[in-house]
């Protein structure tokens, strides 16, 4: 890709052309943070520098990665989806209950995905056509999904279906290292989402709405379709995340994933996506999830710090990123 319209580039111009555009800076900052944390861990703790530590991060957080992908779509339009944690719990419960009732495993999975997608569609329609604030509409979704979970069963139901357990433990090995299938699915979700956001009209319209909704409308873009669409995607991702979570935890429980929506939002924000919309990358959200996971890993490797510190450090990081964003947007406007 050429860097300037003037044909005679001086060497300096070309060197300058290699500096990353400012819009990538937040993501690069998150990457730098992740690398820095990994380096500190590697120096301080025995066995931390093993690449498997990183792969385990992906495995343990596969469901959160998928949630963060859906959340990225929503936040890019300037909205928010608070329902995803509850949808994860509902998904585990639907999977566990339908399997208990003897449904074939793939039908059970389809039911889970359909439920999440439908919930997302409902919230999207409410938000766009009834002009209800995303915060409120998805807060209602949060209560609804959690309530439905209790309605299905108050008790925890364990999953023993062989297809589920097989999927849960199936791994792909690279020499000495391995990834579980769940992590592969999560990474595939990130890749597909990245393509959709960067290279499709739908994806660019997501950014356009986040930039200025009325301008997007005047430019003749499909605002209604896209705005509802991001909540459908988020609902789908939440139920897919719920499936991955049920592979991981092999039970359906109404108390699963309480507050996970906040982890997903934190990951998206730490990944450099602007809460006001229009700016951010799904890869950043992946890195954001990795940073959150890395904090946990660091603290568990340390052994002397109590687990409260996970929350405190997460909070501090979140604050730092939001303040940095604030300055970044103030400068650009």
């Amino acid at each position: 890709m050429s860097t300037a319209t003037v044909p005679v580039d001086s060497l300096w111009d070309r060197v300058k052309g290699y500096s990353p555009p400012p819009r990538y800076l937040p993501v690069l900052a998150t990457l730098g943070l992740l690398v820095g944390m990994f380096a500190i861990g590697g120096v301080r703790y025995e066995g931390f520098s093993d690449p498997q530590v990183l792969l385990s991060l992906l495995i343990d957080n596969a469901f959160l990665i998928v949630l963060a992908v859906g959340m990225t779509f929503v936040i890019l339009t300037g909205g928010i989806d608070l329902s995803v944690g509850s949808v994860v719990a509902l998904s585990t419960m639907i999977a566990a209950k339908t399997l208990e009732l003897g449904w074939p495993p793939y039908l059970s999975m389809a039911a889970v995905l359909a439920t999440g997608t439908l919930l997302g569609l409902l919230m999207g329609l409410l938000i766009h056509y009834f002009d209800i604030q995303p915060f409120i509409a998805t807060l209602a979704g949060l209560f609804l999904a959690r309530g439905l979970t209790f309605l299905i069963s108050i008790e925890s139901i364990s999953i023993s279906d062989p297809t589920f357990t097989k999927l849960a433990f199936k791994t792909v090995t690279f020499g000495d290292y391995y990834l579980r299938w769940t992590a592969i699915i999560a990474l595939a979700t990130v890749a597909i989402a990245a393509y959709v956001l960067a290279r499709t009209r739908f994806g660019r319209t997501v950014y356009a709405i986040g930039g200025n909704e009325s301008s997007a409308m005047l430019m003749g873009l499909r605002v209604a379709f896209t705005k509802v669409g991001v909540y459908v995607i988020s609902g789908f991702c939440a139920s897919l995340g719920g499936l991955l979570f049920s592979f991981y935890i092999l039970s359906g429980n109404s108390l699963h994933a309480v507050g996970t929506e906040l982890d997903a939002i934190a990951a998206v924000v730490i990944g450099g996506t602007l809460l006001t919309g229009g700016r951010g990358y799904v890869v950043g959200s992946l890195l954001g999830v990795m940073v959150l996971g890395m904090i946990k890993t660091l603290i568990s490797f340390d052994g002397t710090l109590s687990s409260y510190w996970i929350r405190i450090i997460t909070g501090a990081l979140l604050l730092a990123f939001v303040i940095v964003q604030r300055f970044a947007t103030r400068r650009s406007s």
Partner: peptide
Amino acid sequence: NLLPNLTVAENMLLGRE
């Protein structure tokens, strides 16, 4: 009525790119 967060080319052609 354009979008400051997208590129110049996208602002010119979005919708019929």
